[in-house]
Design a protein around this nucleic acid. Structure first.
Lengths: 238, 238
DNA sequence: ACGCTAGGATTGTGGAACAATCTGCGTCAA
DNA sequence: TTGACGCAGATTGTTCCACAATCCTAGCGT
């Protein structure tokens, strides 16, 4: 879709894409203030178009806007993580069920994705391992055959990557999951749907626990670093 | 969430909300060109902020942008309808399964929604019947307990409403579905999940067929009215 | 130390402008 | 008559500039 040919891409969309990538690659860590004048000049675009791009990223949940305080790269809260995994459970489990009627090419994508991940591990291209694993799960959800669900899920995984970005030892964290991806992949392709379902559920539970640890650690840091202006008594939102 | 208290709402968001409503209410029919200067002056805002609002609506799938041709209220294609119902099947069926562990207040929402729909039928407030029914299905998906899925699904149903908007006899079309909503509601609340699942599936198949008829009829009209510049041979996308 | 005020920085929004592109209409040739 | 060509106006995409509102920080007084 939308892949016809040469629609000239609006500038704003290109900027949005660039920012998306910066965030995904971890060049813009959670909590970073996004000053629009600075970014505008950096990208060589007007402040308006840049703000348009930011608006899209906000809708995707990658950044947070606060009135008169501008945009900040989102820092995942514990509740955010729960939310992400609620979505993952719903969609990935549905997809496993639905794999019964998925067309072969889409099933082959699963194997391709895992193979890429395994290759990344073998080549010790650590910074690609996490991305490759996410690609596998994206491929799982793609079994549902729904373009809009794919897009939605892509946004969810992008948010999850926010947590990865803050991890110090991403390689060590990511590697153990790849064999489990492989196992799930083979079960699905073998038509062992109930086993695949059970394993996916287990996987997601474990993964959620792991990410929660990371996020909680981050919250500690943040809390420690912001104990200054808490003197009098103004408390409010997150 | 975001219900804390009085965050001053950005102007652009208010405009987006207003436009969303106009489209939902059918005041802006599919295919309508959205001229930004006109809308900007009408809402009393700058062209920039209006375009920001349009950008959001584009992301939600309610309007379509084409480079240098501006924004148009989306007209659902047959494939779009299939897509919408793929999503509905995935999410609503998952939600029915998940109703086993949904908390009581969320279950009560189901009944409230159906009751509103029934009331609308009884009062012959026809233009509210469709909306109320969609609210019921929104409530079903809310059983999953996921804020982001709720938001995503809201967008999907908004697109579906685009089809409703073009119907001549919306009342006659909508009314028959309400008893079926009631039945599904009661089955879910009664814990009869397999029956509820089966009935929901049936419901969605029937509904999809109905909407497809409407959309196909619309495509006929559109086709008939646009047989002019098809002389030489320029073909293009959808 | 603590609260308060002033000034600068940043955001939210509007206005005018301009190049690029589309659209419709008139002209001209077949 | 019909169809291609081209031009002028309208519309879009984007920029620059401006300004009120709000936030943040530092310095002041007590």
């Amino acid at each position: 879709m939308t892949a016809s040919s040469n629609d000239p891409v609006p500038t704003g969309d290109r900027v949005a894409e660039a920012l998306r990538e910066r965030i995904a690659e971890g060049h813009l860590l959670p909590g970073t203030q996004l000053r629009d004048t600075a970014l505008a000049t950096e990208f060589g675009v007007s402040r308006h178009t840049l703000r348009g791009a930011l608006r899209v990223l906000e809708y995707e949940g990658l950044i947070v806007y606060q009135m008169h305080k501008g945009a900040v790269v989102k820092t995942l809260s514990v509740e955010d993580v729960h939310e992400i995994y609620r979505v993952r459970r719903t969609l990935e489990l549905s997809a496993v069920e639905y794999s019964a009627v998925a067309p072969q090419p889409v099933l082959d994508e699963l194997d391709a994705a895992v193979r890429t991940a395994e290759l990344a591990v073998a080549e010790m291209a650590w910074n690609q391992v996490g991305t490759a694993s996410l690609h596998f799960h994206q491929a799982v959800v793609a079994l549902l055959g729904s373009h809009s669900i794919d897009q939605f899920f892509r946004g969810i995984l992008a948010q999850l990557r926010l947590a990865f970005a803050t991890m110090q030892d991403e390689a060590g964290w990511q590697t153990p999951w790849i064999p489990r991806d492989r196992e799930i992949c083979d079960l699905i392709r073998g038509g062992r749907r109930d086993s695949a379902r059970a394993l996916t559920l287990q996987y997601l539970d474990d993964s959620e626990r792991g990410v929660l640890d990371v996020v909680r650690a981050g919250e500690m840091n943040q809390q420690r670093s912001s104990r200054r202006r808490t003197s009098s008594g103004s408390r409010r939102e997150a």
